[in-house]
């Protein structure tokens, strides 16, 4: 946030609005999360560790962290490429492509899962073909990565695009005229100013992926030790009435996601690229 000073000191009405907003946020956001923290940490660090290190839980956490990491790598590369195409080229269909990038914000994640089942499920021709060639997608780990890639498309693109828009294409042209290879232009001219927004966009997509539930729950099959991710494990524990275990895993995942989000915010604030 920049340093716009208040126009006038808030009067009585302004103070009332401020109190109302604080009360709403306190009741709606802070209170439930305090309850979650208390339940997760209330049994002590020992119990927290036991919950996290139980074989199925540890395996679920590892699966969530690794599938999200694979997604983040692909997303960083392809998101930058997409943003570059959108910022540098004007072609028929550019508007459509740009709108398409926002599709994951508009479509329910559960519907994303349903679409992936339809596409790669055992009954579909594509899913059958992959399964027959020893690379099943639905009800296997690849479906998790695909679901995550779908839902996180906008993160890197929308973080990097504004920076690319501000960059003068003449710099790239000058480098090329001076004999730089495509790779050199990319590495030495294009990338350096992009790093902060690329990093914060990738981090945000990773944090988002850690909590994903709706798309994965229908497409991955949720097989313990193989395709059961941490949020779905948490769901199972809630359903079985073990809310203390569910809360413990939640606290761990939430700590990672929040740490990452604050990291991304710090990068954005330091480099003045705030706004996701």
């Amino acid at each position: 946030m920049s340093n716009t000073r208040p126009a006038v000191a808030p009067g009585f009405g302004g103070l009332l609005v401020r109190a109302g907003v604080c009360a709403y946020v306190g009741a709606l956001v802070a209170l439930p999360l305090a309850a979650l923290l208390a339940e997760g940490l209330g049994q002590g660090v020992r119990a927290l560790w036991d919950a996290v290190s139980a074989p199925v839980a540890a395996e679920a956490l590892r699966l969530t962290l690794t599938t999200a990491a694979i997604m983040a790598l692909v997303n960083a590369v392809m998101g930058t490429a997409t943003a570059w195409v959108l910022a540098r080229y004007d072609f028929p269909g550019r508007g459509l492509l740009s709108a398409l990038v926002d599709l994951p914000f508009a479509i329910p994640t559960l519907v994303t899962g349903v679409m992936l089942v339809l596409l790669f499920g055992p009954q579909s021709s594509l899913g059958g073909w992959f399964a027959a060639h020893g690379f099943p997608i639905a009800f296997a780990a690849p479906s998790i990565v695909l679901a995550l890639l779908f839902i996180t498309v906008p993160f890197v693109v929308r973080a990097v695009e504004p920076v690319l828009m501000e960059q003068d294409p003449a710099e790239e042209e000058a480098a090329r005229t001076l004999g730089a290879s495509t790779f050199t232009v990319f590495w030495r001219v294009l990338l350096p100013p992009l790093w902060p927004s690329l990093l914060s966009g990738t981090i945000r997509s990773y944090a988002r992926a850690l909590g994903e539930f709706g798309s994965i729950v229908v497409v991955s099959g949720n097989i313990p030790h193989r395709t059961l991710t941490a949020p779905i494990y948490v769901f199972g524990e809630i359903e079985s009435g073990r809310s203390e275990v569910a809360a413990a895993i939640s606290v761990v995942l939430l700590a990672v996601a929040l740490g990452l989000t604050f990291g991304a915010r710090a990068i954005e604030r330091l480099t003045g690229t705030a706004r996701a």
Binding site: G211, F213, V234
Partner: peptide, 10 residues
């Protein structure tokens, strides 16, 4: 930053 499942739990 909170997973929907955890929102429900909270």
């Amino acid at each position: 930053a909170v997973s929907p499942v955890m929102t429900g739990l909270a």
